[in-house]
């Protein structure tokens, strides 16, 4: 983990309100795992004051150019414009100076190679699942991705997921793409059909809570990536804590989502508290 004072390679709108930003980051990829995040500093002036957390979409190298210079390493973020910080980000261009702290946190545990894997992503929650899908496929796992969103605009990077060799299933609330309805209905059908499965999810909190309930019902292991607002991203501010399983007034358990998470095995979380939260922070880890 490192603080990169670097610059933007490209910043493009890929779907209404969704952008992908490539940032120059030499050496970033070798330490980055699926599900980790970065703290991104939009600009050196105020506002905004605090950095914003974003899940890592992927890392890679730009092809070497004809000058014979070595390939350029980048990290790519995908974000949704939801507030003042992301609105400023959307206006940034190639060459603009930015700061990036990362890779941070604990990502997905993809060491288990047995069974099949189902990934459930809602809207911007699809972002960290791309690197995960890549790692799982590389491990030789069969991967199914259930993509959910309000409309077709929220279904991101379908072609890229498919290119990895992932089977995709799309559902939208308004039926504008794929099946009309919730992604969790699809999950339930898949778990009936493929009982020996591990599930990984990221997305809005009501969806995560529903995925958790279904996985409990089918006794399926689940890893969940949370989005919490945070100030530091390194475990110092203690602003991003979530309640752990077994949390009580007398024996409280608060876990830093930046340091212990952002990915948790779902049985370690207190879902009675989490399920009540609503979040839509536009790509935060």
């Amino acid at each position: 983990m490192k603080n990169y004072k670097t610059k933007i390679i490209s910043n493009q709108e890929i779907s209404p309100g969704y952008f992908r930003m490539k940032i120059l980051a030499p050496g970033f990829g070798e330490n980055a795992h699926a599900g980790q995040f970065v703290m991104f500093r939009v600009q050196r002036s105020l506002p905004p004051l605090l950095r914003r957390p974003f899940g890592i979409f992927r890392t890679g190298f730009l092809p070497a150019d004809c000058d014979g210079l070595p390939p350029t390493e980048f990290v790519e973020l995908v974000y949704k414009v939801v507030g003042s910080g992301t609105s400023i980000m959307a206006e940034l261009h190639e060459g603009d100076k930015v700061e990036l702290l990362g890779p941070l946190g604990n990502g997905f545990d993809c060491t288990s190679r047995k069974g099949e894997k189902i990934l459930v992503g809602g809207g911007i929650g699809l972002v960290p699942l791309y690197m995960l899908a890549g790692e799982l496929v590389a491990n030789g796992c069969k991967v199914r991705l259930l993509m959910g969103g309000r409309t077709r605009d929220d279904i991101l990077a379908v072609t890229e997921f498919e290119r990895l060799g992932v089977e995709t299933y799309i559902s939208t609330d308004d039926g504008s793409l794929g099946e009309a309805g919730l992604v969790t209905q699809v999950l339930e059908r898949k778990l009936q059909k493929y009982p020996e499965t591990e599930v990984f999810t990221c997305g809005p909190m009501p969806m995560l809570a529903a995925v958790h309930d279904i996985c409990v019902k089918y006794k399926t292991p689940l890893q969940v990536s949370l989005e919490e607002s945070m100030a530091c991203g390194v475990g110092a501010c203690l602003g991003c804590v979530v309640k752990g399983a077994g949390h009580t007034e007398e024996k409280p358990s608060y876990l830093c989502s930046c340091k212990v998470g952002p990915v948790f095995k779902s049985q370690y979380l207190d879902w009675s508290a989490l399920g009540k939260k609503d979040n839509d922070c536009g790509g935060c880890a």
């Binding site: 506002p47 004051l49 919490e228 501010c237 203690l238 602003g239």
Partner: peptide, 20 residues
């Protein structure tokens, strides 16, 4: 000490509120 319930932080104009 366990600290306060969440949310614990919020950004404000040129500042932040915390109740850790």
């Amino acid at each position: 000490k366990a600290g306060n319930p969440t949310p614990r932080i919020a950004e404000t104009v040129s500042g932040m509120l915390n109740a850790i």
